[in-house]
Structure formats: C-alpha cells, structure tokens
C-alpha cells in the first residue's frame, strides 16, 4: 500500500512530538531529522493543529507540542486528514462493474479495503512508539538499494 507523502510526514511529526509530549519542537527541528523541507512540513503541521493533534507554542523557543490522546489517535485518523483511502464498494461503478464478474472483483477489492482500514484503525500513536522502540533496540535496518523513494507517493 502506498501513502501520500503528507501522511508520512504527519505520522513522523506526531511520533516525534508524542515521544516527549512536554517538549516543544520547531518545524525545522522535526524537518532536519527526516530530511523534510520546512515549507512542506509547516502545511502538514497546520492540518494537525486544526485537528487538535498538535498545539502551536508561540514566542522564543516556540514550536509545536503534542496535544492529542496518544492512546486513542490511530494511523487511520491521521491519514484520513490528508487523503481519502477510498472504498471500492462506494465508488460509482461503470456498466462492466454491474456484471457478475465486476461484482465478484469488487467484493475481493472490498475485502482488501476492509483489512487496510482495520489495520490502520487499530494502530495508535502509543503502539507505534512501542514499535519504534523495538526497532531501535534491534539496531539499524539494512536498506534495500534497489528501492527508490517517490517524492509524490512514498
């Protein structure tokens, strides 16, 4: 499954802030860790702020602070702020989709949509932080050199 880059940035920023919720971080500080442009990240932070997942702190040393409930915010809620995951069954079908073959295919694709939603909807920010800790304890991953990062759709 592929996500829009904004969804990735939002998840990274929330993980960074929720790991130490009393701390405030600037867009530049978060951006530096993940090699993200401040301009792009600022737009993402605005959306997270409107969703009350982060809070802007003004003044010297200002930045952003985590403001949500890390035990309740799920990846699905974050991703849906930036993109529509869609559901093949709710999309208007063409004439070929109303055939038995089309309906059978839509049923299978619908199963995949359901599993995607259930998975993303069950992973909270706290669960992700625990997962990050386990990955960190295992040491750095070996990157696969053949994989390239698509800037539009990571």
């Amino acid at each position: 499954m592929k996500l829009q880059i904004a969804s990735h940035l939002a998840i990274y920023a929330l993980l960074e802030l929720a790991a130490q919720p009393e701390r405030q971080l600037s867009v530049a500080e978060i951006g530096q860790k993940y090699d993200i442009s401040s301009h792009h990240l600022a737009k993402v932070m605005n959306v997270l702020g409107r969703a009350k997942m982060v809070r802007a702190v003004r003044g010297a040393g200002g930045g952003y602070q985590f403001a949500g409930n890390a035990r309740r915010i799920t990846l699905l809620e974050v991703i849906q702020l930036f993109e529509d995951l869609g559901d093949v069954r709710s999309e208007p079908g063409g004439s070929r989709d109303s055939t038995a073959e089309g309906r059978a295919l839509r049923q299978i694709l619908g199963e995949i949509d359901d599993i995607t939603r259930a998975t993303l909807g069950s992973i909270t920010i706290v669960t992700m932080l625990k997962l990050v800790d386990r990955k960190r304890a295992k040491g750095p991953a070996r990157l696969q050199p053949s994989r390239s990062v698509d800037a539009e759709s990571v």
């Binding site: 599993i115 069950s122 909270t124 386990r134």
Partner: peptide
C-alpha cells in the same frame, strides 16, 4: 473481529502483529 476496534487496539498495543 475486524470491527472490534477497541480489542484490536488493545492487542496491537501489547505488541501483537499480523
């Protein structure tokens, strides 16, 4: 159950994966 979000969140929080 896929729609039992609370229980899914609990088991995920305990480190269970697919």
């Amino acid at each position: 159950a896929r729609d039992n979000r609370l229980t899914l969140m609990f088991f995920r929080g305990e480190g269970m994966m697919a």
